[in-house]
């Protein structure tokens, strides 16, 4: 007796096929990532892509021709959208920067992927696609340069930032000065040492210990750290929730926050760690002309003013 296909089975099979079809279409329409080798490629010169958009201002487009051993990226950004992997500390500024860029270069839009620099670096090293990379740490910038991910000539200093200590508005820990940070029972939040601001915070603490407060203060302060967050905004969140007594973040976070969100304790410039942000175009970008325009924008007074507004120290 032949088995007849029951109606519900037909429906089930159609649903499965439909889902497979839909996911295939979806995958085709969105970005796919290229697989870049983990080791630097033994080559050559950067690729040139056609400067598709004639722009009023003269932009410096990288013009060297290429042959590359890596397979050309199989995807291109949807027309006009630039992908910027950006250090998380620029989260607050990113909205304004994006709008301003589109106003200055109509028809272009920038999409920010905001995360700890270390996380973004890992993503790029594992094949994630981006046009522009904004790094909060010189050492990560240099690593990416030496690994061949950057168009090295395009890497420029974007702005700088200092470390600052923020306290919840109500100051539950009654911290009046930096020396209070070592008091027993104080809860401090910091970024993990792999996050740029984490290294910067530790460096600042060491400087302060050497110059003013001593090693005992440093040890007690470090043992007061209750959590090492994986990005800078996460530290700020824990402080704003009042769950910790103090947190080490960037000055930009404190400046950009609404008045009354935090109390702050500044660290003097001589003891502080100057964090240098860099911006650069990635080798894998298929949109280098627009990427260069974005970089130009960020380094122009338009971009730098916005950064300053959000508490970063501009370079111009």
């Amino acid at each position: 007796m032949k088995e007849t296909l029951k109606p519900y089975r037909i429906v089930l099979i159609s649903i499965v096929c439909g889902l497979l079809l839909a996911s295939a279409l979806f995958a085709g329409c969105t970005q796919s990532t290229t697989s870049t080798p983990a080791t630097p490629v033994a080559t050559t010169a950067p690729v040139t892509t056609q400067a598709a958009t004639p722009v009023a201002t003269a932009t410096a487009v990288p013009t060297t021709v290429v042959t590359t051993a890596t397979p050309a990226p199989t995807y291109t950004a949807s027309s006009g959208n630039l992908v910027a992997f950006t250090a998380a500390s620029l989260t607050g500024a990113s909205g304004t920067l994006g709008t301003s860029f589109t106003n200055a270069y109509p028809g272009h839009k920038v999409v920010f992927n905001l995360d700890g620099t270390q996380a973004l670096k890992t993503q790029v090293e594992n094949g994630a696609y981006a046009d522009v990379f904004i790094s909060a740490s010189n050492s990560y910038t240099n690593t990416l340069k030496s690994e061949g991910y950057f168009v090295n000539s395009s890497v420029k200093t974007l702005c700088t930032n200092y470390v600052i200590v923020i306290l919840p508005a109500s100051n539950p820990g009654n911290i009046q000065s930096l020396s209070d940070l070592s008091k027993p029972g104080v809860k401090i939040a910091m970024a993990a040492s792999t996050v740029p601001v984490g290294t910067a915070s530790l460096a600042a603490i060491s400087n302060l210990a050497n110059s003013t407060y001593g090693q005992e203060w440093k040890n007690s302060t470090i043992s007061n750290v209750v959590t090492y967050e994986t990005s800078e905004p996460a530290v700020a969140t824990k402080v704003s929730l009042g769950e910790v007594d103090a947190g080490f973040v960037y000055q930009s976070t404190a400046t950009a926050a609404a008045t009354g969100t935090y109390q702050t304790l500044t660290i003097s410039k001589k003891d502080n760690y100057l964090q240098t942000y860099s911006i650069g175009i990635l080798q894998e970008s298929t949109n280098k002309a627009v990427a260069a325009e974005f970089e130009q924008f960020m380094l122009s007074s338009a971009g730098q003013d916005i950064l300053q507004e959000y508490g970063f120290t501009p370079v111009i």
Binding site: A189, A192, V225, V226, T227, Y228, E229, T230, K238
Partner: peptide, 13 residues
């Protein structure tokens, strides 16, 4: 865990 307990080696990591 990371939201409520935080991330501290030996204690919550």
């Amino acid at each position: 865990t990371i939201m409520f307990a935080g991330n501290l080696p030996g204690v919550t990591q």
